[in-house]
Structures are given as C-alpha cells and as structure tokens.
Design a protein around this nucleic acid. Structure first.
Length: 672
DNA sequence: AGACACAGGTTTTTT
DNA sequence: ACCTGTGTCT
C-alpha cells in the first residue's frame, strides 16, 4: 500500500481523486511528479488494473523518470495470466501514437513498416518541393515553410492560421504536396503521428473503441504545452469515461511559438464540465525571497489562473542584481562568482547553473569558463541527429527496412561514393516520377537502367545487391543486430569514409566511436525477432534524440542551459545572464506581441533557483558583429526592491568591516 | 568530384 | 562574427 499521508493536503486530494475530470494546477516546484506517481500507485492499490492506466508526458526523459518512480512506489505489480507484470503505460503522445499506428495504419493506406522522418529528412522533402516550384517568386526558406506546415497540421482541419485567402490556399497546396511526397515513401513525420491517429479514430471507430477500452484512466503531464492535435487526442480517448487528470501550470507555458495552446488549460471547463480544480501552491524548492519575486513578476500577466507560491524554507538571501560593461565582463564575473562560491562557500560546480535566453550567449561564457579551468556542460545546442554519422547510419537502417523510402535511399545511395553521382540520382528521381513509383522501384526496372552508361548500370546493380543482401540477413531468427550492423558498416567501409571526410583524424575516430556506442545498444530488446527489433530500435531512436545527454550528466560540472530547456530542472545557485530589453524579453516577441510568454519564460528561469539567484545585464553587447547599447530588462523593475540587493550601488560603497570579516572567515573555513 | 568563394541570415526546441 | 548553403572553377 502506498502511503498518501506523506503528501500535503492538496497533493493528497489530487492523488486520491481517481474518477471524473481533474485539473491539477501545479506551480513551479510544488511536487507535481511526486503527486502524479502517488496517484498512479494509489490507483493500483484500489484495484485498477495497471494496463488501464495511461500517463502521457512531453519528453521521453520525463516518461522514463515517472516510470522509474512508479516502479519504486509499487515494486510488485499485479501479474497477468502469462505471469508477466502488467504495467501502466507511461510515454509521450508521439510514442503512444506510434504504438496505435503500428497496429492500425494499414486502414489508412500506409504499410505497417512505415518510417518516421526526422527533422532533417522532413526538411529535405520541403526543400525538394521549394526547388520544384522555383519558377514562382518564393520568399520563404525551407525552415520557415516547414514550421508553417507543422502549425497547419497541428491546428487541425477547419482552424485557419491565416487571415488572407491567398496565403491559405498556397499553404494548403504545399501541404498536400508535402503529404503526398511522404506518403509515397511510406513515411510519416512527427505531426503525422498525432494527426493520423486522430484520422484513424474518426474513420475507424472500432480502433478508437479498442483504445478507449484499454486506456480508462488518463493523465496528461505538462498540460499547458499540449497543442490542438494532442488535446483532440486526449478528448477522443477520455470523452466517454471522463477519467482524465491533467497536470500543468499556465504560468510556465513557454512553447506557444511551436503550437502549444495554453487555452487548452485556461478553458478546460468548456470541454470537461464539472472539472475539479486542485491548486498546488506549496513550493518545496526555493526560498520565499525567490518565490515572492516570481509571484510579483507573473502577477503582471493577464489571463491566468491565480496562484500564490509559498514555502516553508524561510526568506533566504536577497536576489543579487549586477550590471556590466559588456558580455565578456559579465561572463568573467559570473565565473569568478562561481569559483568564489566553490572555494569560499564549498559549493560544488554541479550545484550552480548559468541560464541564458539564446544559445549565442553561451560562447563568451564558455570562453570564460575554460580560461578559469571550470568544468561545465552545455545542454542543448547541436542535436544528436545533426551528426553526420548518425544520420547516415539511420538512413541506411531505414533503407533496409523500407527501400521505397526515397529520402533515406537518396541520402545514402552514394555514401560512401560508389559511382552513383548526383546526376545519376537526379535522373533516377525523375524516372521515378514518370513511372509513378519510388526511386528504388525505378532503379530496379531494366527499362530505366538501360538509359545509363554500362559503368553506372553496374554501380546501380551493385547497390541493389547490397540492399538485398543486408535485408536478407535480417531474416535469420538468431541474428545479433550488433553483429549485423558491424558487418555492413565494414562492408561499405564506412570508417574509411569518415576518415576521408574529416581533416582531423581524432574527430573521425570520435564519430566512429559514437556510432559504435549506438550500435552496441541494438540488441537490447531481446525478446523480438531481428526485423522487429530493428524497427523498434529506429522508432525509439527517432522519437528520443537525447541519448548522450544521460551519460554526460555524471561528474562535477557547471550547467549551461537556455531558459527554455531549464523547465522542470532546479539548481541551488542560479545565474541568469543577459536580463536585457531585446534579449529577455526578446525583440522578436515584442514585435509578435507575445510579451506574456517572455514574462513566463523569465518566471520559469527565476523559479529554477533553490537558494540563491543572481540576475545580470550588460550596458553594451556585440550583436551580429557590431557593438550595440543595451538597457536592463523591463521585467527587472517588476521585482520589488525589498527583495533585491543591487550590487552596482554597493560597489560604490566601501566594504563594511563586518562583510570583510565574513568573507575572511569563509575563506579560512575553506582552507581547513 | 572536390575545393573555395560569396551571399544571406541569424530565438527559443521536442517529438 | 559566424555558420550554412549555393555556385563556380579547376
């Protein structure tokens, strides 16, 4: 039996209310995950079969964490008939949809072995479309168009993003071309996972019934981040039984720009009348000084569900405010501060974080940290998938699973170069269009191959043979995928290819090691057949890019992180740099009229701090090469003076005897 | 096919 | 300032 008495009254109410719609308004640091995991455990105690429980999170990391904590709370899950334990489903919206679609997608005219396109593959398709219509004066870049298409898809049919008809018609045409291109490759993108599942539910009520019967108790975490498609999905599943519990904080909605719709939370009553609203306001993370500042700032936002965070942790230190001449001085001083904390106050690097609005701000910080010999790790930035070796490898895997996947095949057809030049591939692509088939199918036609030089023809035949060979080997039931992958990488001499492309031998070896590390994990799902295991491996990997960050969090190091990716994390000592008008709030958001969201971003940043918070800004900053003057962020003025220690005023005063004594005492203690 | 030069564009990021 | 993508030259 799980013990709910260790929860506070509101948390307990949330964990004990199992039926009917519930909204848990969980402010920053109020024990949201703890409440949710206890709720799941409580359900199981009350006899609800675990496989009737569905908890949806936004990231795989959050899903893993919740999974682990639930298992800890209920070590002995009830067993099924076959002796295996029944587990609650804890996953992301996207992986839930993959599971559903792997069962039912044939009803929608896709083949069961569909592939999921990663960001770069999606962009590749968009670029092709843009190139095809280059006659018209197109002013949008591929990224921009891709973002647009994504927003259209997620908004769902009937909901227009544009005011004017022309743009709408244009966007619709492009969207259709994009969808057709993907479907021709039996590929789906991230948005399709949601949209196609919705379509499935609409057109095939039996599939929906099956899911409703399975998932009778639904929880959605980070509910303020749901987009329209995700909301519709949740509603489709929960409409009948109404056993839905959403957890979120409208004040931490910072992903509106990528389609998250906070009105899903603000107007929840419209769709789930009689929803029980439970507020978690006791914060277990920060000092009251920090919470008072956060409360004061966020109060300036209209249209929010009122919350007042408080804590039993006492007042704590004042928030420190510092101004600097430029970003280099800012970086150096913050690093000095970190080192002072470590040496005089025995605060290790891992308990300190530097937060910033944009990635480019990380550069001067990294320079200063290196100069001072401080260990750090930078979160975010270059994604796993931007690495060439990973993208090549995945494209090979996708080609072997489904050679009709044009994007993947075109990517690897001539990597390493095997006599299938760009020109050849262009011609094959054209042939595929005239024959109305995939590039692979076109390449396999004698008629098509006859158009090429004997040498090229030979190269094509060799390539076809390679694909058949590798696919064929997958049929062996007892195959080790690690061995299989190692073999084909050796066969195509990929290591040599990497060395050729890299001037530095060291980085080439690094890349090869990355690949080997990845390959080594391929046989983890041992209970499946090799081909299925490969499919599962690809799905997991495509939907979860964050593998390497797990191993990097070991060791003592300062965290460098953007204000966006710090959501959900906490650090004893936080330095938020670049609190300047134009940066936080960002210029672009002021133009777009999304100042509220910037304020929430500032709110999220300051509520990461447990013990101390330092806010800094510069008087000038290099932007795109030239130096521009900067002004302090208007958000700083929203923090009551009584909570702030302005170190610029203080610098003008002499150091007090008392303070000097304190500092020396601290340093003496450090020398012990 | 590969190397180099020039133009353009630069928020935030997950799945 | 710097990175990416494109185009041109060898």
């Amino acid at each position: 039996m799980v013990d709910l008495s260790r929860l506070n009254p509101q948390q307990r109410d949330a964990a004990a209310t199992l039926e009917g719609p519930v909204l848990i308004l969980a402010g920053a640091g109020t024990g949201k995950t703890r409440t949710l995991t206890h709720r799941v455990a409580h359900m199981v105690d009350r006899g609800i079969p675990p496989d009737h429980i569905l908890a949806v999170t936004f990231t795989n990391k959050a899903a893993r964490e919740m999974q682990q904590r639930v298992v800890k709370l209920i070590p002995k899950l009830p067993a099924r008939d076959d002796g295996r334990p029944t587990k609650p489903t804890i996953c992301t919206f996207h992986s839930l949809c993959v599971r559903i679609l792997r069962r039912h997608i044939e009803k929608l005219g896709y083949k069961r072995n569909f592939v999921i396109y990663s960001e770069s593959e999606q962009l590749g398709v968009v670029k092709k479309i843009l190139a095809a219509i280059s006659g018209k004066d197109v002013k949008v870049g591929p990224r921009e168009l891709h973002g647009l298409l994504s927003r259209i898809k997620n908004a769902g049919p009937g909901r227009s993003i544009f005011a004017d008809e022309d743009s709408l018609a244009m966007a619709e045409t492009l969207r259709r071309r994009y969808d057709t291109a993907l479907k021709a490759c039996n590929a789906v993108d991230f948005d399709d996972l949601l949209v196609l599942t919705l379509k499935l539910f609409e057109e095939h009520p039996d599939a929906l019934e099956q899911c409703r019967a399975r998932y009778r108790f639904i929880m959605v975490d980070e509910y303020q981040d749901t987009n329209t498609a995700q909301f519709e999905l949740m509603r489709a599943l929960a409409d009948e039984h109404q056993n839905v519990c959403v957890v979120g904080d409208d004040d931490q909605s910072i992903y509106g720009w990528r389609g998250a719709d906070v009105t899903n939370l603000l107007n929840l009553e419209e769709h789930f009348p009689g929803v029980k609203v439970i507020k978690l306001e006791q914060n277990y993370r920060s000092t009251n000084t920090i919470l008072d500042a956060a409360n004061a700032v966020i109060r300036n936002n209209p249209q929010r569900r009122e919350k007042q965070l408080w804590s039993a942790n006492g007042q704590g230190d004042l928030i420190r405010l510092q101004a600097f001449e430029d970003e280099d001085e800012e970086a150096r001083t913050v690093v000095d501060e970190i080192e002072f904390n470590r040496m005089a106050r025995r605060i290790p690097w891992r308990e300190q974080a530097i937060l910033f609005r944009t990635n480019m701000q990380a550069r001067p910080l990294e320079t200063a940290l290196r100069a001072a010999g401080v260990r750090y790790h930078l979160i975010g930035g270059q994604s796993f998938f931007d690495r060439r070796e990973i993208r090549d490898f995945l494209a090979y895997l996708k080609t072997f699973i489904n050679p009709n996947d044009d994007a993947s095949l075109l990517r690897i057809a001539n990597v390493p170069s095997r006599g299938l030049s760009d020109v050849t591939m262009e011609r094959l692509l054209a042939a595929s269009q005239t024959h109305d088939c995939s590039v692979w199918a076109a390449t396999n036609k004698d008629l098509v191959r006859a158009d090429f030089q004997p040498r090229t023809r030979r190269a094509m035949e060799d390539f076809i043979e390679l694909v058949y060979q590798c696919r064929g080997r997958l049929k062996d039931e007892h195959l080790s995928l690690v061995q299989w992958a190692t073999d084909f990488l050796a066969e195509i001499e990929y290591a040599a290819e990497l060395r050729k492309g890299e001037k530095n031998l060291e980085t080439a070896e690094n890349r090869m090691q990355n690949l080997k590390d990845l390959v080594a994990t391929m046989d983890e799902k041992n209970d499946l057949l090799p081909a299925e295991r490969l499919g599962q491996f690809l799905d997991d990997l495509t939907l979860d890019a964050e593998r390497e960050s797990e191993k990097e969090d070991a060791g003592d190091a300062v965290t460098l992180i953007t204000t966006h990716s710090c959501k959900g994390l906490e650090y004893p000592h936080v330095h938020l740099v670049g609190c300047e008008e134009g940066l936080l709030p960002h210029t672009r958001s002021m133009e777009e009229g999304t100042l509220d969201e910037e304020r929430r971003l500032f709110y999220v940043a300051i509520t990461r701090a447990m013990k101390t918070l330092t806010l800094t800004h510069c008087l000038s900053r290099k932007k795109f090469g030239s130096v521009v003057p900067c002004h302090p962020s208007s958000f700083l003025k929203e923090i009551p003076d009584t909570l702030v220690e302005d170190l610029n005023e203080k610098a003008a005063e002499p150091v007090s005897v008392e303070e000097g004594a304190d500092m020396f005492a601290a340093m003496r203690a450090a020398l012990d």
